[in-house]
Design a protein around this nucleic acid. Structure first.
Length: 420
DNA sequence: TCTGGGGTCCTAGGACCC
DNA sequence: TCTGGGGTCCTAGGACCC
């Protein structure tokens, strides 16, 4: 079998550039939520040694000196560009598996044209560039892992390979693996590197040569599968249908630190309401709620608390979820502590219909109708048109900062780009 | 002064059951 | 002195990913 993966080059930066030509050919970074650190860097920005995750206050000098452009992250735009990217991809393949916001696995079709795999991949890249404006790279191989390695190699030596590498050939694999450090392999993180290095396993060639049983001993079944996949043995299937969400989280840093119990409660309620909205959109309900609040992890003695509550019966009702989260926030608040972030996680998600009923606390039969009206109005007139009183009104100082956001080019009718 | 957010999978260990 | 064996379910925590 044959696997392919296509990833978008420096996705958030590339997406920003599609609708703003002034950002092209200059160093550009996209900032995390709260405008805290650089989470995407253009090639020019990487050349200035701006690291992934570098906090803005530490790179201010470089930014000023080299005129580095920066933008707040704009997830509506990225999600929409991702949708367009996958639309083009599905014109070429009927087996597309969306893996992340900037990558999709797919199967190359067998074309009667006699076009080779690499030529087909090049054609896909050209079309995505023409139709969506995004630069991509493609890795090919007999397993998922090998296509990922091929993709990473294509990224690392862009000029030599022109954006496509095919690792079906064992000879090529041997040559490439000998020089490719395990740190760069998909699925090998810091902890695994620490365990593998003492065993003399440093290159991908060393890793591929490990006995699967040893791999399982050193790591887990995950490492064993990884080793098998490096040798061309498929250990995973295509998943064209996205799996149902199993958990979801809404966590945000505050624009300004929070020192007040009522403020913490209100911020927690806003996140809880958002989380409930997310699972309703997927027709899911949750049976477990985790709320947490903490201070800066870079400061000593920062507060840190989290609480778990069982939701019985399972629910996606914002009144229940926000009410529970509010009580948890009040209970975890410590007088005198400085909070910089809080969040809500919903777990044990299950479909609305097939959910377990709780004999002793039946849900209000009128709730579904009420929630449908709530979502209907907010869909139509904008988020927060209808809200819980406990969410408070208007913008707050604790809201996440997004000071450098570009217009919502593709998702807001009043902000579409105008050609003059 | 200022440091992101959102997921999945695996394992070990405890509770509980027969 | 000596205290079975096997299964399931749940949770916490680690590791990894983008």
């Amino acid at each position: 079998m044959s696997w392919a993966i296509v990833d978008i080059e420096n996705f958030y930066c590339s997406a920003e550039r599609v609708f703003d030509p002034t950002l092209r050919n200059v160093p550009l970074i996209v900032l995390s939520n709260g405008d805290g650190c650089a989470i995407a860097r253009s090639a020019e920005a990487k050349a200035l040694h701006i690291a992934m995750g570098a906090p803005m206050f530490k790179i201010r000098e470089i930014v000023k000196r080299h005129g580095v452009q920066y933008r707040s992250s704009s997830y509506e735009l990225y999600a929409d560009m991702n949708r367009r990217f996958n639309m083009v991809l599905s014109e070429f393949s009927d087996t597309v598996e969306i893996y992340s916001i900037d990558e999709s696995f797919f199967r190359l079709p067998v074309l009667p044209s006699g076009l080779g795999d690499v030529e087909q991949a090049q054609r896909i890249r050209t079309t995505i560039k023409q139709h969506v404006g995004l630069p991509t790279r493609i890795g090919l191989g007999p397993t998922r892992t090998l296509s990922k390695v091929a993709n990473a190699l294509a990224k690392a030596s862009e000029k030599v390979w022109n954006g496509v590498i095919d690792l079906h050939d064992e000879g090529l694999r041997r040559r490439m693996f000998a020089k490719w450090p395990i740190e760069e392999v998909w699925g090998i993180g810091k902890a695994m590197v620490k365990r593998l290095h003492p065993l003399g396993v440093r290159t991908t060639a060393d890793l591929a040569a490990m006995h699967p049983d040893l791999a399982r001993d050193v790591g887990t079944v995950v490492l064993e599968r990884l080793v098998r996949e490096l040798n061309g043995v498929e250990c995973s299937d295509f998943q064209p249908e996205p799996e149902a969400l199993k958990s979801t989280a809404v966590t945000r840093s505050f624009g300004e630190p929070v020192r007040d119990r009522e403020v913490l409660r209100e911020a927690m309620v806003r996140r809880a309401v958002r989380a409930a909205e997310k699972i309703r959109a997927q027709k899911l309900q949750a049976c477990r709620l985790i709320a947490f609040a903490h201070g800066s992890r870079f400061k000593p003695n920062a507060p840190s608390a989290s609480k778990v509550a069982r939701l019985s019966p399972s629910t996606n009702d914002p009144r229940v979820i926000a009410g529970t989260a509010a009580r948890m926030a009040e209970a975890m608040f410590e007088q005198g502590a400085v909070y910089t972030k809080c969040g809500v996680m919903l777990e044990g998600l299950e479909p609305e219909s097939g959910a377990q009923q709780d004999l002793f606390s039946l849900p209000d039969p009128r709730s579904p109708a009420l929630l449908a009206v709530l979502d209907g109005i907010n869909d139509r007139f904008g988020r927060n048109t209808l809200r819980l009183a406990s969410e408070g009104m208007g913008a707050k100082s604790y809201d996440t900062k997004r000071a450098y956001k570009s217009p919502s080019w593709t998702t807001r009718i009043d902000q579409v780009p105008i050609a003059r």
